[in-house]
Design a protein around this nucleic acid. Structure first.
Length: 429
RNA sequence: GGAGGGAUGGCCGAGUGGUUGAAGGCGGUGGUCUUGAAAACCACUGUGGGGUUACUCCACCGGGGGUUCGAAUCCCUCUCCCUCCGCCA
């Protein structure tokens, strides 16, 4: 949720930001609504004040055994009037709330200006592109040939944009998730959490998916429940409507869950393979922190995600999302892009964001600073650590051999029963 | 699925329709006492919003509606939790 105070105090700054984000919201319209709301509020509150003191008078007279009939008679119409004004004030507040819910977060000052993903500057790279003395295959071809990926049967079961994993591929997905969770929980200090993957509307609103992005979600028929598009939703909402002690921050949670996305509007994009599915697995890292520390925490979080790629020996680069590419709720985002030789391009495998107090304001996530009287909004961050399906893609494309076999990265071998190589033909079906 | 019982501040827990924003306790903060600490005692201690912003007003007792001059308290409805029965991975 956008900060109402900031909007009232610095509408020009907000308007400039919206411009940069190519949003069509009209700040002038908001100002009119807000002024109206305040005028109405003052009127109705002064009427209520009158009513309250008159009611107190009635109570006093009754206790004294006096007849309050005359006073009572005069109060009926006052209450009627209050009821009417209250109703219209409520409508206005609703309107203004809808307004605030549809304003994207303010980018951090360090976020580069730009209009789309082509303007995202590369911050750094790690490793090198592997060299091949043959033309590397794309993962769907390799995976299908090796008997691990089955898109035809997935289409039969569910339709386009689903995958069936067989045998070694299923285990590889599981191995990746285990490696990630083990590193994050034992080395990076995260607490593992396994949340529901079906959540209610309040949770979706808390992290910013609703009300604006309903079409991206799978909604359960006849219910106000949704399949999560990322574990960010249930995990961030764990502390919704809670006040935490400062000593309990930062909190760090790691969750491995399936994620569900309708992918509305992505027709024709990445139609092959595991890159863009309606259902995929992800290890998500979520951190709750204080405003002072949140940008330090963002770097820490990014480091945790990067560490997985390093352990797997996968070449990647880090880009900073520019203002035009930044997500709705984020103040700053780094994308980790892994090198995919089969596709000859870098692909996003993790997105690490600081939301500052944007989600915290929506979800009412607070903490009480030491020696402070009042609780204040916490800052929330999250990042993929990593997208598991895409990690499998990266391993397949980077570790393929000329003979069509696949070498298992060393870090994963303990999770693969010691297996070092996958060779064709090996079909479970 | 059937039958009952609940939901009150950071937590626990009182609350006959009329100075109840809400007793009491715990926790927290400050203070007295102490060489220090503990104990004891004293004081303070919810959130959001409006204004003429060292003050004052309004709202909030799970959510939403209603009755009333006045609702934590009465009525309706929804959600969630608990107990018992049935079913079940």
């Amino acid at each position: 949720m956008f900060d109402l105070k900031l909007l009232q105090k610095e509408p020009e700054r907000v308007a400039a930001m919206l411009e940069k984000r190519r949003s069509k919201l009209d700040i002038a319209e908001f100002t009119v609504l807000d002024d109206k709301r305040r005028a109405l509020l003052q009127e109705v509150e002064s009427l209520k004040s009158q009513r309250n003191s008159a009611s107190a008078e009635v109570a006093k007279m009754k206790r004294a055994g006096e007849d309050a009939g005359e006073l009572l008679a005069s109060l009926g119409s006052l209450s009627e009037r209050i009821k009417e004004l209250d109703a219209s004030a409520n409508d206005l507040v609703q309107d203004i709330n809808q307004w605030l819910l549809s304003i994207p977060n303010m980018p951090h000052e360090s976020v580069p200006a730009g209009s789309d993903e082509n303007d995202n500057p590369v911050l750094c790279t790690w490793g090198e592109k592997p060299s091949f003395d043959f033309t590397p295959k794309e993962h769907w071809e390799l995976g299908t040939t090796l008997g691990g990926l089955d898109f035809e049967r997935a289409a039969k079961l569910s339709g386009a944009r689903y995958a069936v994993y067989w045998g070694w591929a299923a285990r590889l997905e599981r191995a990746c998730a285990s490696l990630m969770l083990d590193i994050h929980t034992t080395e990076h200090g995260y607490t593992e959490v396994m949340p529901p993957v079906i959540v209610n509307k309040d949770s979706m609103t808390g992290t910013g998916q609703l009300p604006k992005f309903a079409e991206d979600l799978f909604k359960l028929e006849g219910l106000d429940h949704y399949l999560i598009p990322t574990a960010e939703v249930p995990v961030t909402n764990l502390h919704r409507d809670e006040v935490q002690a400062e000593d309990d921050l930062p909190r760090a949670y790691a969750a491995f869950t399936p994620c569900f996305r309708s992918e509305a509007g992505s027709y024709g994009k990445d139609t092959k393979g595991l890159i863009r599915l309606h259902q995929f697995n992800k290890v998500e890292l979520v951190r709750f922190t204080t405003p002072e520390r949140s940008y330090v925490e963002l770097e820490i979080l990014r480091g945790h995600a990067e560490e997985i790629l390093r352990r797997l020996g996968l070449h990647y680069r880090v880009v900073t999302l520019c203002t035009g590419d930044l997500g709705f709720s984020a103040a700053k985002t780094y994308d980790l892009e892994v090198w995919l030789p089969g596709q000859d391009k870098y692909r996003e495998i993790s997105s690490c964001s600081n939301f500052e107090d944007f989600q915290a304001r929506r979800a009412n996530i607070k903490f009480k600073p030491k020696n402070a009287k009042k609780a204040v909004l916490a800052h929330t961050l999250n990042g993929s650590g990593l997208a598991v399906g895409r990690t499998v893609v990266a391993i397949m494309e980077n570790y393929q051999q000329a003979d069509g076999s696949l070498v298992i990265p060393e870090a994963l071998r303990p999770y693969m029963g010691g297996r070092e190589i996958i060779t064709p033909p090996e079909s479970a079906a």
